[in-house]
């Protein structure tokens, strides 16, 4: 049990997928203009990532094995695309508003490199099934956490007198950098 907790803390804070691994920057920059959208995106990604993490473990272990390891990336992408497609239909039915605000970014979860990165890291780190699930969940929660904090900050930034050349995306990038700096404080927390 303690191991799983450590995986969670490790992936959420210490090795945060966005702040420390610098993965998933596309939705991080793209869907962080509004707090509500960010929260929706966070949950959608959490759902997809956890599922993808588990499913890819099963495929890798039971279908591919050691013989077909060269199919890993390909099959993972196919699985992720499938799960995203499913999530898209699900959200469209259950929450048209969220579907609307997520817009193009919902199908783009497919190309969120964090979503592919986590399953690949699972393989690299030789995680078991439950570990993979927790690793996926933790990575996704970490992503959601920083995305939501970032979105709240950007909402306030929207009204600040940022110098013109830095307005918009550039100040957001700088902010992301400073957030990353703050996250360095977590380094070494889990050895």
């Amino acid at each position: 049990m303690q191991d799983y907790l450590l995986i969670l803390i490790g992936t959420v804070f210490v090795n945060n997928i966005v702040m420390a691994k610098i993965l998933g920057l596309c939705p991080f920059m793209g869907v962080s203009k509004k707090l509500e959208t960010a929260i929706g995106m966070g949950f959608a990604t959490t759902f997809v990532l956890t599922l993808a993490s588990g499913a890819s473990y099963l495929i890798d272990t039971y279908l591919l094995g050691t013989d077909l390891f060269y199919l890993r990336t390909l099959s993972f992408i196919v699985v992720i695309a499938g799960i995203v497609g499913f999530t898209e239909m699900f959200i469209r039915k259950t929450s048209p508003v969220l579907f609307r605000v997520l817009g193009i970014y919902l199908p783009l979860i497919t190309t969120n490199c964090a979503v592919l990165g986590i399953p690949l890291l699972n393989v690299q780190e030789r995680h078991g099934f439950v570990e993979s699930l927790f690793f996926g969940l933790g990575g996704a929660l970490g992503f959601t956490l920083v995305l939501v904090l970032f979105a709240a900050m950007r909402e306030r930034l929207e009204a600040a007198d940022v110098p013109l050349p830095f307005k918009g995306t550039s100040i957001a990038m700088i902010t992301a950098g400073l957030m990353s700096l703050a996250f360095m404080g977590f380094s070494g927390l889990i050895r």
Partner: peptide, 12 residues
Amino acid sequence: FTVLIANMAVPF
């Protein structure tokens, strides 16, 4: 670091 992390969470 903790001050910065706390700052980060403030708008939220």
